[in-house]
Amino acid sequence: TGIVNVSSSLNVRSSASTSSKVIGSLSGNTKVTIVGEEGAFYKIEYKGSHGYVAKEYI
């Protein structure tokens, strides 16, 4: 489990790349469930599926 550490919002992406499609966003202080790691990204549970967020903001 981690907490989103941004002042505005954090993009949730379809894969572990900054060039991948943005599938949603999370507000600061949102609790997320981390299910894996891939490079500079965490794989998280997101809306019944999975998404990826940059580690530096969790």
Rank of each mutant, 00 (worst) to 15 (best):
residue 51 G to C: 02
residue 2 G to N: 05
residue 20 S to Y: 07
residue 10 L to S: 04
residue 38 E to H: 08
residue 32 V to A: 02
residue 53 V to L: 04
residue 2 G to V: 09
residue 57 Y to P: 03
residue 36 G to R: 04
residue 39 G to I: 03
residue 24 G to A: 04
residue 30 T to S: 12
residue 45 E to W: 10
residue 10 L to M: 07
residue 2 G to S: 06
residue 23 I to F: 03
residue 19 S to Y: 09
residue 7 S to Y: 07
residue 41 F to M: 04
residue 14 S to G: 08
residue 7 S to E: 10
residue 36 G to V: 03
residue 33 T to S: 08
residue 32 V to N: 01
residue 17 S to H: 10
residue 11 N to W: 11
residue 2 G to A: 08
residue 38 E to A: 08
residue 22 V to Q: 05
residue 2 G to C: 09
residue 40 A to Q: 12
residue 40 A to T: 09
residue 28 G to P: 15
residue 34 I to L: 05
residue 30 T to K: 06
residue 28 G to M: 13
residue 1 T to Q: 12
residue 55 K to I: 06
residue 28 G to Q: 12
residue 29 N to Q: 12
residue 47 K to T: 05
residue 21 K to D: 12
residue 48 G to K: 07
residue 18 T to E: 14
residue 54 A to V: 10
residue 46 Y to F: 14
residue 41 F to C: 04
residue 43 K to D: 02
residue 6 V to R: 08
residue 33 T to F: 11
residue 53 V to E: 00
residue 20 S to T: 04
residue 14 S to V: 13
residue 23 I to T: 03
residue 26 L to H: 01
residue 2 G to H: 08
residue 58 I to D: 02
residue 7 S to R: 11
residue 15 S to Y: 08
residue 25 S to L: 14
residue 17 S to K: 07
residue 33 T to P: 03
residue 10 L to N: 03
residue 33 T to W: 11
residue 39 G to R: 05
residue 43 K to R: 11
residue 53 V to D: 00
residue 10 L to I: 15
residue 2 G to Q: 06
residue 34 I to V: 06
residue 10 L to C: 12
residue 17 S to Q: 08
residue 39 G to P: 03
residue 39 G to F: 05
residue 31 K to P: 10
residue 34 I to P: 01
residue 37 E to H: 07
residue 20 S to H: 05
residue 46 Y to Q: 01
residue 48 G to D: 09
residue 4 V to F: 04
residue 48 G to F: 06
residue 46 Y to M: 03
residue 17 S to E: 08
residue 30 T to E: 13
residue 46 Y to D: 01
residue 11 N to C: 14
residue 43 K to V: 12
residue 16 A to K: 03
residue 44 I to D: 00
residue 41 F to D: 03
residue 32 V to P: 02
residue 32 V to R: 01
residue 27 S to C: 12
residue 14 S to A: 15
residue 14 S to R: 13
residue 36 G to I: 03
residue 44 I to N: 00
residue 4 V to I: 08
residue 37 E to N: 06
residue 50 H to Y: 15
residue 3 I to G: 04
residue 34 I to C: 03
residue 26 L to R: 01
residue 20 S to N: 03
residue 16 A to Y: 04
residue 38 E to C: 10
residue 16 A to I: 05
residue 7 S to C: 14
residue 44 I to H: 00
residue 56 E to W: 08
residue 51 G to D: 00
residue 43 K to T: 04
residue 18 T to P: 15
residue 7 S to K: 13
residue 26 L to Q: 02
residue 55 K to C: 04
residue 54 A to N: 09
residue 7 S to D: 10
residue 27 S to V: 14
residue 1 T to E: 13
residue 50 H to L: 10
residue 2 G to F: 06
residue 17 S to W: 05
residue 49 S to G: 15
residue 16 A to H: 05
residue 50 H to F: 15
residue 40 A to K: 10
residue 48 G to P: 05
residue 13 R to P: 00
residue 22 V to I: 14
residue 58 I to R: 02
residue 15 S to A: 14
residue 3 I to P: 04
residue 53 V to Y: 00
residue 34 I to G: 00
residue 24 G to K: 02
residue 56 E to C: 12
residue 23 I to R: 03
residue 21 K to N: 12
residue 52 Y to L: 01
residue 15 S to C: 10
residue 35 V to N: 04
residue 29 N to L: 11
residue 12 V to P: 00
residue 16 A to S: 07
residue 19 S to A: 11
residue 17 S to L: 08
residue 5 N to T: 11
residue 57 Y to A: 10
residue 15 S to K: 10
residue 27 S to N: 13
residue 35 V to M: 09
residue 38 E to F: 10
residue 16 A to P: 15
